[in-house]
Design a protein around this nucleic acid. Structure first.
Lengths: 244, 244
DNA sequence: CGACTTAGAGTCAACTAGACCTTTAATAGG
DNA sequence: CCTATTAAAGGTCTAGTTGACTCTAAGTCG
């Protein structure tokens, strides 16, 4: 942007898209929302939901709109952050398309309705993609891996794990988020201690949830803090899902 | 990217640019490379170096090319990473231009030659921009602030601080990088202890540098490690430069 | 030589993480 | 009613880390 439009080499004209890596945790497993493509190219294959940025539309707004269109979720409630821009020439056979990827995290969401151009939308276990049982269209597997690494890192330094939980939630609910995203088992007792001593991570609401069996667990809401100081480190180096 | 090109709302056609936040540390102060714009809009004002992405050119390649063009530095030697995509409509009066910002970190570089369309290029202390003594064209101040926060965070978790140092360097050189970027004074003794016990951060070369005054300091090269485990935390909460 | 300056090593108390144990509050079954 | 089972919640203990601080080493300058 430091050069004017009048110069030797004219700037390339291109199209911008947003793609969404939408994660949730369902019964202890990390899932990502994928659509089955209804149009060429890659018709019938699995891909991340997304769409083109419209005239006069901000990138964040395009991401929120696609999120709403593909999941039916009023975007305000979900955590959404820009992940990375992917712009290799040739990444899309239709032409020069730069994709701005976004990462969205949310609680177990209502089953997504099929999007406008997707023939179907499904929650897919992330492990099945990492293990190669399912391949994605375009460079979407790369985007997914980057999104996973970002999510894992965010769990260490911020309180967004709570964004995965439907309120109210228990400490065990929160721990299962960490275990699913990191692919590690955590010590329940030490995890509780860390969370409780981190000011503003969770707020007790003074009620309890009766499980099928075992002692009832106290219920919490999200706290006001956004960052974790000190961070919650994933030290145990087991990696059940083959990350980075 | 999940929709085809045939749909109700046609995708916006736009232009992509890369902008560079190039940091270095000169005599204990963090500096950023700025150009004086030689063309409209914002002619004569300070801005980040950058330029348009060319036809068939990858984003990273465009960033490296601009880096070379604006600084005369063979890009390979500098750390360069994508920062964020900025695409608000109206951020550039010339039309819809999406800018992919990159962060570059390097040792005190040779004085930059003026770029092709910049009338001049200078190293400017970051503090003078943060304190409002100098304003930047477009949304470049926002980009600069994001770049600074990224750099600060990277220093905590990775070994890139060494990328700021011309080899060979002393532990004190490295410490001054941290102090300049974080805007904090650090305890020399404790800093040394942390760095030395982090495997692969620095490698001793067995020589010493004679300073003007004081005991000679051992010299080091960059090590092989990329990540710091555990991280180097900026705990003292003084913030001399008014960052996030 | 002695004052001075910076590098580098060491000390110590406070704190933290990880492993593990104990108690508590519920259910299920005899 | 009593006991086993389950998971929550809380406690203990040790090893390691951090931050503040002191002390020694190796040079220069006058």
């Amino acid at each position: 942007m430091s050069k004017t439009i009048h110069q030797r080499r004219p700037p390339a004209s291109l199209t911008a898209a947003v793609d969404l890596v939408i994660f949730t945790v369902r019964d202890g497993q990390l899932h990502v929302l994928l659509i089955e493509r209804g149009n060429m190219p890659y018709r019938g294959e699995a891909a991340l939901p997304g769409g083109f940025v419209r005239d006069g539309e901000a990138l964040d707004a395009a991401a929120r709109r696609e999120l709403r269109e593909e999941t039916g979720v009023a975007g305000d409630s979900l955590h959404l952050e820009q992940l990375h821009a992917y712009g290799d020439p040739g990444r899309d056979p239709r032409g020069r398309i730069i994709s701005i990827a976004y990462l969205a995290l949310g609680p177990d969401l209502p089953m997504p309705r099929a999007g406008t151009d997707a023939s179907a939308a499904h929650w897919i276990p992330v492990s099945s993609i990492l293990e190669g049982q399912l391949t994605l269209a375009f460079d979407h597997e790369k985007i997914l891996r980057d999104g996973l690494e970002r999510a894992r890192s965010q769990l260490e330094h911020t309180t967004i794990a709570a964004a995965f939980c439907k309120e109210p939630f228990t400490i065990a609910d929160l721990r299962q988020i960490y275990e699913a995203v990191w692919g590690l088992p955590l010590d329940p007792s030490n995890f509780r201690r860390k969370v409780m001593k981190t000011e503003g991570f969770v707020m007790p609401i003074g009620e309890r949830r009766l499980p099928d069996v075992g002692r009832p667990a106290a219920l919490f809401r999200r706290g006001l803090a956004e960052t974790l100081t000190p961070p919650l480190t994933r030290s145990g180096s087991v990696d059940l899902q083959g990350g980075t």
